[in-house]
Amino acid sequence: MSRVPSWMLQFIGLLLVLFLLLPIGAIFGLGLYYTLGIFLVADASQMMAALGKESGIAPALLQTPLIAIAVTLLASAWGLALSLLWRHWIVRRHYFPLMASALPFLLPRFGLGALFLLACLKLAQWGGNALGLALVAASQAAVAAPLIAAILCLGWRRVDPAWREAALEAGADEMTIFRRLTFPLLKPFMGFGAILAMILSLGDFYLGNALSGDTLLLPGAILSGVAQNVSPLYHALVAVMVLVDVVLLALVTRSLKRLAHPRNGILS
């Protein structure tokens, strides 16, 4: 059997990548076309008036990034605590609680949303939209936390236990050890996980739709507007969202480079 030439494999790989990126490129191009059209024919006041007419867009533009920031902070703290438990469980080969704690990430999003909704239905009805948005943030953080914990477990492998013992013998307390020794090594992993948590939150549709109550978040608002072809404004927002994802992807790539090349001199 003859060997397939390497150039042919590269060509097939390029075609596959182009095929996968074609829908994203088409959506982004269409959205960019509408975005440039809006900027060319409308001034700022007209754009604000168009946003005002679409009652779900203006609140979604404000609330969705705030929820994403809250999810990022909550999931980072949650993931750090979870990574400590996972290290303990892995050493003792307690894999069942580890997998149980990762279940929110493994479950389908609509199933997780249904579980949160059933568990907190009365509470959500009592608390209204504000509590519904809090449930959205909590559920999205529950999804992102196991992912961050798994990433941090890779970072914990770079922490030498001998450093901690030497620091304790020198009189350092646990907080100083974590701040000066451990956290500088974990920081690139934490940053990488935090960006992924923000991407998951900004692009989430199922949990936001299921738990936000009467409030419409940006993924739901854009998807509904594009499906109904209500206004070119929604197509422009698609381009903006894709552009945000590209920026976040660039930050992820930069974080991966930092993970591959950790800085020396962590005590500085």
Rank of each mutant, 00 (worst) to 15 (best):
A70Y: 01
S55N: 10
L32N: 00
T64S: 13
R87E: 13
A49D: 11
Q63G: 01
A42C: 09
W89H: 02
I90G: 09
L61V: 03
A44N: 03
L84N: 06
L51F: 10
L36D: 03
V41M: 09
G56I: 10
L98R: 03
A75G: 11
Q63R: 11
L82M: 13
G52I: 00
A50V: 03
E54F: 01
G37I: 04
T72C: 15
A81E: 08
F105K: 02
P97N: 03
I69T: 14
A49T: 14
Q46D: 04
I38V: 10
R92Y: 05
V91P: 01
W89Q: 00
M48T: 13
A102Q: 10
L66F: 14
A26G: 07
L62P: 10
F96M: 09
F39L: 15
P97L: 02
V71C: 12
G56N: 07
T64W: 02
W89S: 00
P23K: 06
S76A: 07
S83W: 03
L30D: 11
G52E: 02
V41S: 15
H88R: 12
L40F: 13
S101L: 14
G29P: 03
I69M: 15
A58C: 09
W78Y: 14
L61D: 02
W86C: 04
A68T: 02
G31Y: 02
F39K: 08
V41N: 12
A58V: 13
A77R: 03
P97V: 01
K53E: 14
V91C: 05
L74Y: 04
A70M: 14
Y95K: 01
I24M: 09
K53M: 08
F39R: 12
Q46H: 09
S55K: 15
A68V: 05
I90Y: 13
I67E: 06
A58N: 05
L98F: 13
A58Y: 07
L98Y: 10
H94M: 12
V41H: 11
A49C: 02
L61G: 00
I67K: 01
A81P: 03
F39A: 14
T72P: 14
A42M: 12
R92I: 07
G31T: 00
I38R: 08
L103V: 07
V41K: 13
A58E: 10
S101W: 04
I38T: 08
L40V: 07
G25P: 00
K53C: 05
F96I: 12
